[in-house]
Write a protein that binds this DNA or RNA. Structure first.
Lengths: 337, 337
DNA sequence: TTGAAAGCGCTACCAG
DNA sequence: CTGGTAGCGCTTTCAA
C-alpha cells in the first residue's frame, strides 16, 4: 500500500487522483459508458490505478445515486426445506443472475409479516420473491410496493393480496396420491400430517387434496394421522394399527414414508399387501427402500422461465397481479402400492 | 395516498414536511437518538406522519452516511448442503441477528475467488463468513479487507490465508470411522469417494483421515471407492465386490451408505457379517435402515458462540487470524458394524 | 475528450 | 429543544 492513508477504503476519487483524471472520467471508464468516448491511454491509466488501489465500487452509493437497484430479495423460508425446493431455489437464483440481478437471501427470523416486510424494504430491492405468503400478507406487500419494489411474488402454497403468485398448489400432490390409491382399489386412506410446526401450509392442502379426491367414492374414507418425525411417534401411531382399519397411507413425503414404513414392518404389517404406502418428492430414498416406495413426483417450473417472468414484471410494473399455477404432480408407481 | 406525488417512495423529508418539522428532527425521533431530547408532542407527530406515509428508511443511504453497515454476508455454498449444515447455518444466522447484524446470503454463482470477493465487497459488509475457502483464497480475503470488511471468516474444511477460520477438519470424521472399524477387528477398509463435483473438499480429507488411522496397523489396507449417487454406479461398484476383499466400508455419509448398503444386500453381501458399513451425519435415516446404520455423529459448534466470536472480531479487528477447530466426530455404533 | 458540480437519502455536527 | 447544513461515494448532466 504505497499511497495515501493506509487503512481507508479506496474511492473513485482516489482512483481519479492516482490516474490524474477527474472522478467523472473514472466513472466513464469503469462503467464502459458508451455515450462518451475516452482515449485509450486514459482508459489504461484509470484501469491501472483502480487495480493498484484494489478499488471496488460502493454498491450502496451507486444505487442511491441511480435511484434503483437490481437486487432481488428472496427471504429464506422459515422451515427447513427439502432438496427438491433447494434445487429449484438455486436454479432460479442462477437464472436471475443471468438477467443481471443480484440475488440476495435474507433471513427474517421471527418477524411477523409487516415487520419483516419493513426490514426487507429497507434494502430497497427491485423485486421480492417470498417463499412464504403467510410471512407477508397484504399489508406486507403494500409496504414493499411503497418502498419501490417493482415486483412482489409469492412462491409457495399460498398467495398474498396484491402480489403476483407462483402458486404451488399442494392439493394436487394429495390428489395425485389419492387417485393412484383409489385406482388400485384402496378405499380407507390414512394421511400423515407432520406435527412439526410450520409444515401445516404444506400438509393441510395435501390432506385436503386427498379428501377432495376421495369424496364421492363409495366406501372411501380419509383418516388424519398426526406423526412427529421420531421413532417414538411412529411406534405410537402403529401401536394399534389394525384397529385403524386402513388399507393405504399417503405419508406426506418420502422421509415420513420411510419412518412409517419402517414402523409398520417392525409391527409385522405387510407393505403393500396389508397397507399401501405412498410418499412424495420422489427422492433417491424412494428407490432404495424395500419395497420400493411409490412416490408423488413434484414438478417445479424452470428457473429460467420464472426469471423471465420476474424480469418482465420488473420492466413493466403496475399490471394486475398474475397467478401462475406452477406445480405438477404425478405418481411414480413402484412396489409399495 | 392523500399527499404528494402518488408514485414516489416517501423519504424522511416527506415525513418532515408532513409533520411540520425538519429532517433532522425526524431522524432524531425515528432513531431514538439519546443525545438529544425531543418533546413528546413532536415525537408523536413524527411517528404519525411516518406511519401515514408508510415511511421506511433507506438502508443504503444510512450506511453510506454512517460509513459502515452491520451487514454480515454469508455466501451460499456452491454445493448442495445437508440438513446438518443447514441447521447450523440457520442457528448461526439467528444468533448473529441477536447481535443486531443483518445477515444476508449471497449466491455468487460460478465466480472465481477474486471475482466473487469483489462482488461481495461491493456490498461493503462488515463481516464475511465464507463456507468455502477455495472460493475465496488469499487474494479474495485481501479484496474484502480492503473494502472495509472488519472480519473475514472461512467456515469449512479449508482455510484461507489472512482470514480467521472456523476449521471443520473432515479428517476427524474419517479417523473416527476408521478407528471404530479397526477396534472391531476390521482391517481392509473401503472408503467411498463421491464422484459428484464439489464434494472433494469433504471427501478427500475424510479419506485422508481413514488413511492416517489405518497407517501402521498390521494388515491394515485402504481402498478408494469412487461412487456416483446413482443406483447404476452402486451396482457397478458392487459387481465384483468379493474381488475387492473388503471387510468394511466407510461410506462418506449416510446417504451414500444407504445407497451402497442396498446394492450390497441386493448382491447377497451380508452387512455387517461380510462387510461392515459406517455412514456419517447420523441422520434419522441411519436409525431407520436395517441393519441400523452405524454413523459418525458430527458436532458443530453453537451458533451463539460463533456469533460472539464474530462480534468480538468486528469490534476489535486487526488481530492475527485465529483458527478455531470446531468439529467433533464420534461414532454412534449400531448394527451395521 | 475531460472536468466541475449537483444531488440521491440520510445522520451528525453546530447554531439558534 | 429544533433547524440548517455538510457530506458519505457515486453517476450524469452541462460546460469547457
Amino acid at each position: 500500500m504505497p499511497q495515501g492513508t493506509p487503512h481507508s477504503v479506496p474511492t473513485s476519487a482516489d482512483v481519479a487522483r492516482l490516474a490524474g483524471v477527474s472522478r467523472a472520467t473514472v466513472s466513464y471508464v469503469l462503467n464502459n459508458t458508451s455515450a462518451v468516448r475516452i482515449s485509450e491511454p486514459t482508459r489504461r491509466r484509470v484501469h491501472a490505478a483502480a487495480k493498484e488501489l484494489g478499488y471496488v465500487p460502493h454498491a450502496a452509493a451507486r444505487s442511491l445515486r441511480a435511484g434503483h437497484s437490481r437486487m432481488v430479495l428472496m427471504p429464506t423460508p422459515q422451515i427447513a426445506v427439502g432438496p427438491l425446493f433447494s434445487a429449484f431455489f438455486n436454479e432460479l437464483q442462477w437464472a436471475l443472475s443471468r438477467f443481471d440481478y443480484t440475488v440476495v437471501q435474507y433471513g427474517s427470523l421471527g418477524l411477523t409479516g409487516e415487520e419483516a416486510a419493513r426490514a426487507w424494504a429497507e434494502l430497497r430491492p427491485v423485486a421480492v420473491l417470498a417463499p412464504d405468503a403467510t410471512a407477508l400478507g397484504a399489508r406486507g406487500v403494500a409496504v414493499l410496493k411503497r418502498s419501490g419494489a417493482k415486483a412482489v411474488f409469492t412462491l409457495g402454497p399460498q398467495r398474498a393480496e396484491g402480489a403476483h403468485a407462483l402458486l404451488m398448489d399442494q392439493r394436487l400432490v394429495g390428489r395425485a396420491a389419492a387417485e393412484h390409491l383409489l385406482a388400485r382399489g384402496r378405499r380407507r386412506i390414512g394421511v400423515v400430517v407432520p406435527e412439526e410446526p410450520g409444515l401445516e401450509v404444506f400438509s393441510r392442502p395435501r390432506l385436503d387434496g386427498v379428501r377432495a379426491a376421495v369424496r364421492g367414492v363409495a366406501a372411501g374414507e380419509v383418516t388424519e394421522l398426526p406423526l412427529a418425525y421420531t421413532e417414538d411417534s411412529a411406534a405410537h401411531l402403529t401401536d394399534r394399527w389394525s384397529a385403524l382399519g386402513l388399507d393405504a397411507v399417503f405419508a406426506y413425503n418420502d422421509d415420513y414414508a420411510m419412518l412409517l414404513t419402517r414402523a409398520l414392518q417392525d409391527r409385522g404389517v405387510a407393505v403393500p399387501e396389508d397397507t399401501a404406502v405412498v410418499g412424495a418428492d420422489d427422492l433417491m430414498l424412494a428407490r432404495l427402500l424395500r419395497p420400493r416406495l411409490s412416490s408423488v413426483r413434484i414438478e417445479l417450473p424452470s428457473g429460467r422461465g420464472l426469471a423471465e417472468l420476474v424480469d418482465r414484471v420488473v420492466r413493466e410494473p403496475g399490471g394486475r397481479p398474475e397467478v401462475h399455477d406452477v406445480l405438477g404432480a404425478s405418481v411414480v408407481h413402484r412396489e409399495s402400492s
